[in-house]
Simulated assay, not measured.
Amino acid sequence: MTTIDKIAWLRIEDGRLLGARSRGKDVYYLPGGKREPGETDLETLTREIGEELTVGLDPATAVHAGTFEAPAHGRAGGTVVRMTCYTADYRGTLAPASEIEELRWLTCADRDRVSPVNQLILDHLHEAGHLR
């Protein structure tokens, strides 16, 4: 089994979760990405969110919100994504950058438009009363 280790930002506003769609992709993902050698979770998250969404995260406000695993979207069987999720405050204006083509505020109604690991996260957030 191959595991893809990713760090993701959970940004919830008005019962909706921020999602991002990369150019050429047909599903929404949570903003974030893979760590560079030697990076901590928060260093990875801060770098990726700056690159993808043009905002600065405040690491002092970061809170681990859970770690989720599911089959990787669009990959061969046996490939799993492990998504370590954090909430954190930010400064700046959210805007798609780098490979991100579109930002979207997701609700449970968008469950079929996200990757399998993100479906688990949407379900978890809905059950906890955070998403509509």
Score class of each variant (00 low, 15 high):
Ile7Ala: 02
Ala8Arg: 03
Trp9Asp: 00
Ile12Gly: 03
Leu18Gln: 02
Lys25Cys: 13
Asp26Tyr: 01
Pro31Gly: 10
Gly32Glu: 11
Gly33Phe: 15
Arg35Ala: 15
Arg35His: 14
Glu36Ile: 04
Glu36Gln: 10
Pro37Leu: 13
Gly38Arg: 08
Gly38Met: 11
Glu39Trp: 15
Thr40Asn: 07
Thr40Ser: 15
Asp41Lys: 04
Thr46Val: 06
Glu48Tyr: 12
Ile49Phe: 04
Glu51Arg: 12
Glu52Cys: 05
Glu52Gly: 06
Leu53Gln: 02
Thr54Ile: 04
Val55Ser: 01
Val55Ile: 05
Asp58Tyr: 10
Asp58Phe: 13
Val63Asp: 05
Val63Trp: 03
Val63Lys: 10
Thr67Ile: 12
Thr67Asn: 06
Thr67Val: 11
Ala70Glu: 09
Pro71Arg: 12
Ala72Lys: 02
His73Pro: 04
His73Ala: 09
Arg75Lys: 14
Ala76Trp: 06
Gly78Cys: 08
Gly78Ile: 03
Thr79Tyr: 03
Thr79Met: 07
Val81Cys: 04
Val81Pro: 01
Thr87Val: 04
Asp89Glu: 14
Tyr90Val: 00
Ala95Asn: 04
Ser98Gln: 06
Leu106Pro: 00
Leu106Asp: 03
Cys108Thr: 05
Cys108Arg: 09
Asp110Gln: 09
Ser115Pro: 03
Asn118Met: 12
Gln119Ile: 05
Leu120Phe: 13
His124Phe: 14
Leu125Glu: 15
Gly129Phe: 10
Arg132Gly: 13
